[in-house]
Simulated scan of single mutants.
Amino acid sequence: MEFDAEPWDYLAADEAIDIEHPLVQEHAARLRTGDDIAFAHAAFDYVRDEITHSLDARDPRVTWRASDVLREGTGLCYAKSHAYTALLRAAGIQAGLCYQRLRSGDGFVLHGLTAALIDDRWVRLDPRGNKPGVDVAFSPSEDRLAYVPDGAASESDSRTVYAFPHPAVLDVLKSATDCVGLCESGALPSSLTG
């Protein structure tokens, strides 16, 4: 994997990964059981299972800040990854964000997931939420992804771990007012290049 920042940045806060927010701290403390692996697993299961995927749930609320995702209980893949990353960082586990470029109809859409340093190994984990055709579980030792990009369809899997949400993603989420409309109108970001 490649990294776009310094190691300490993968423990830092920003406007979307608001690890110092009381709600993030409260959730991290409540989920903390056992060692870092047990915590990372509990936090993964919580975000995957208890935070609905906005489009799957047909929920129009737009969330992008980790604390908002935890408060509202919903978010797109990007927002759920922000929440999982924030929970991990709040517990002192280095984590960042990764993206895949997947086919959606005649075009492409970015899919967001989390990478974390668990048991001295960086693994990519996808807390988007399970649904028919998507069944992702936690693993401390290998990547567990909801989607495997098809190179023949020009899909791609970025191996860069970003310390903070990419502007192409964050700008779209921050300007949206209807999550379902955002998804159905084809306005989700399709690449990291602008």
Rank of each mutant, 00 (worst) to 15 (best):
A115H: 05
D150H: 14
E26P: 00
D14A: 08
E72A: 12
R48V: 02
A83L: 06
Y46I: 05
D49M: 10
D126R: 11
G112D: 05
D14K: 07
R89G: 02
L117N: 12
R61N: 03
L173P: 01
Y10N: 08
D157V: 00
A152N: 12
D35A: 11
R159K: 15
W8H: 14
A86D: 01
L182D: 02
G107E: 11
T74C: 11
F3I: 03
Y10S: 07
L31Q: 07
G96E: 01
C179S: 15
C179G: 12
I37D: 10
D171E: 15
A153H: 10
D120C: 09
L76W: 01
G129F: 00
L87W: 02
D171I: 00
P60F: 04
E6H: 12
F39E: 04
L110M: 14
V180I: 14
A137Y: 08
D4G: 09
S104Q: 14
W64I: 02
A42K: 11
T160G: 05
R124N: 05
H111W: 04
E26N: 13
D68H: 05
V69Q: 05
A163K: 06
E50N: 14
P165H: 04
P60W: 04
Q25C: 08
G112C: 12
G75A: 07
R58H: 12
A187N: 13
D18A: 04
L110D: 05
P127L: 04
I118C: 06
I17L: 15
